[in-house]
Nucleic acid binder design. Sequence first.
DNA 1: TATTGTTATACTCTATAACTATA
DNA 2: TATAGTTATAGAGTATAACAATA
Lengths: 156, 156
Amino acid sequence: MVRKKVKSAVPDTANDSALRELVGYNLKRAYMTVRDDFVVTLEKFDLRVTTFSALVLIVDRPDMTQSQLAEALSIERSGVVLIVDELENRELINRNKVEGDRRTYALRATLSGIRFCEKVTAAAQAHEERVLKNLNKKQRTALVEILNLIEAGGSS
Amino acid sequence: MVRKKVKSAVPDTANDSALRELVGYNLKRAYMTVRDDFVVTLEKFDLRVTTFSALVLIVDRPDMTQSQLAEALSIERSGVVLIVDELENRELINRNKVEGDRRTYALRATLSGIRFCEKVTAAAQAHEERVLKNLNKKQRTALVEILNLIEAGGSS
DNA sequence: TATTGTTATACTCTATAACTATA
DNA sequence: TATAGTTATAGAGTATAACAATA
């Protein structure tokens, strides 16, 4: 049977006006919107968001260690192992020996890793255009500035 | 041994400048900052974020159904069952019979549920003050406006 | 046939803890 | 003693799929 309201005091949409009073709720909703589209974007490259971030960080900063990567990604070292394993198995990065400290690896992107990263980054930029199409340049700048103020407040 | 750099071309902090170019990355970082503090805030009430949202929605809109709640929370109906179970076990809400459709429940907060919700909401507002302390009134308004533009773009 | 709520199960992501090898 | 990386395991949170009751 098709849903049919005959008479009722109850509307059939939720009322989230109280939650909307919280900035955090609006932040979460927008974040989810962006993330959902980004996840779909990265699926074409068989990448998860964190794996993409890891690759970009390694490309951007050759010879970083796994512990530094864990710190940057805000995850545990044990989680980094799996991510680095995958990137290495796909020959996008290498674990290189470090002279003077045989405990650590210097992570470095391969040539194909760098090229791959460039392609994915282009797709990420297209994703951003898509998902931020309602915002003009000034709004995007203002948004990032405010977001960074929030992030800066978290550590104080 | 204390970590001691003698000489090295490699800085010991990560470089996320490439990721910072993506609005989504800044959005995620700020979201994580806010969420982490909110999770701690809600722990005192033995609530998870989604359970809190569910309670507020039910208080705000008496007699909504579980399916409507699932839609509003953007989760599956099966997940709502567990959340409603918990809220009901804690006597914060009731599952009431609906005349004319014996399949559905009308969810309604109890008196103590409403009072509890008010207390948690006050704590949530204090949390927001804390986490948004770096933003003035104008910035908060601008932020929500821009976030809502992003969210609106997701459905188009 | 379609929908609501339910259950059982599986999956994704991450944390925790214990371990090794090195420092 | 402390640190880097590793492994095994567990937990949180959610989705999927199948089901009974009802529409």
